[in-house]
Amino acid sequence: MRPTLSQAVARLILLPGLAISIATLVKGYGDAGDGFAAGVIAALTLLVQYVAFGYREAERRIPGLRRLPVAAVAGLARALAVALVPAARGDAILTHWPPPGDSPVRLGTLELVSAVLFDVGVFLVVLGVVTGAVGAIARAAERAGGRA
């Protein structure tokens, strides 16, 4: 069977879409975009795969897609950890590192601050929830015997 136009586009868009999403995420603290936007971009890219290939084929093509809802749990755990670690050190929860005034550690043009870690948690939750919900709907629709 020859790939349809949508499948060709989906294949083309996959890696650039994920790359843009990651860029939005890591640069979020210095530029437009944040973990939420990055999560939605990544989820949309994956949604296109679902729509173009159907969920079975999409999950076969992209290893780990099926397990992605676990990312929601991991993201929540990560955000909670960022929030609670300062409490263990005697600060208020969600006190970010480095404190105001200190200059953050730089990695090229990236600045390492704990708020970005928190944002990564948000990213994971959004990504996991959107793909998880769509996957669940697709499975339910197939069970019901309809188009998915």
Partner: peptide, 30 residues
């Protein structure tokens, strides 16, 4: 807060607790 993007700083830092609550709700919704 070492941020050049105010919106992200609000979400991740100033109002981080709200964000934490919101993502919890989202995960529970899933």
């Amino acid at each position: 807060a070492h941020a050049k993007d105010v919106v992200t700083a609000i979400l991740a830092d100033f109002r981080g607790l709200d964000t934490l609550g919101e993502i919890t709700v989202i995960a529970v919704a899933l």
